[in-house]
Amino acid sequence: MQLTRITTAVALLLGTLVAAAQGTASVEGTVTLPKPPSQVKINPRYAAQAGALLPPEPPTAVVFLEGAPLPADDKPATNVVQVAQKGMQFGPGLIAVRKGTRVEFPNGDDFYHNVFSYSKAKRFDLGRFLKDEKPAAVTFDQPGVVKLYCEIHEHMRGSVVVLDTPYFVKSDTNGVYRLTGLPAGQFKLKAWIDDKISFEQPVELKPGAASRVNFPGSP
């Protein structure tokens, strides 16, 4: 634990020094996260359970800056991100991607999985796919929150936060986050945890300075 704290402090210090050297701003802080969910129980009404069930991931948050101008050298997202289905869980269960990112869904189990969503930002159904075949993929081309489900295993839940900005980061499982390389100015900083919990706060970013914003903020 002591070593983790020292490493975190050194990283923050280095980040601040880099930001100062580049004239960009940064923001860091902590998001108060809900309690980790309990282990899900499957209800196999008419058959035996197939396969072992992994525990769900602990909660994390996506923190992003809204209203900031895009960098002059900004390019459309071309990266590919993977969300695996293993142990009848999405892993990671929450990701944040830039609009235009392609997400692959490899099946890590010996039985079928499916991924579908009826979210406004992306409506899709990838059918049933096997462990050994090329992972099915979706390009997320509209900003918004896309909820992921598996029609075979109803308890499975995942979320893709699709953003129209390059300024975002996912917190660790303690809620600690750090966003760097930000433009100076007055913007909104938002933290999204799930459909029920999200926060936002105004933030003033100054060149070369690191701001601190915790969620929820002081009343």
Partner: peptide, 15 residues
């Protein structure tokens, strides 16, 4: 007395 057999297959959009 009843004897039965069943077969199922699925892949992508087919069942």
């Amino acid at each position: 007395t009843t004897i039965g057999t069943d077969l199922s297959w699925s892949h992508h959009g087919w069942q």
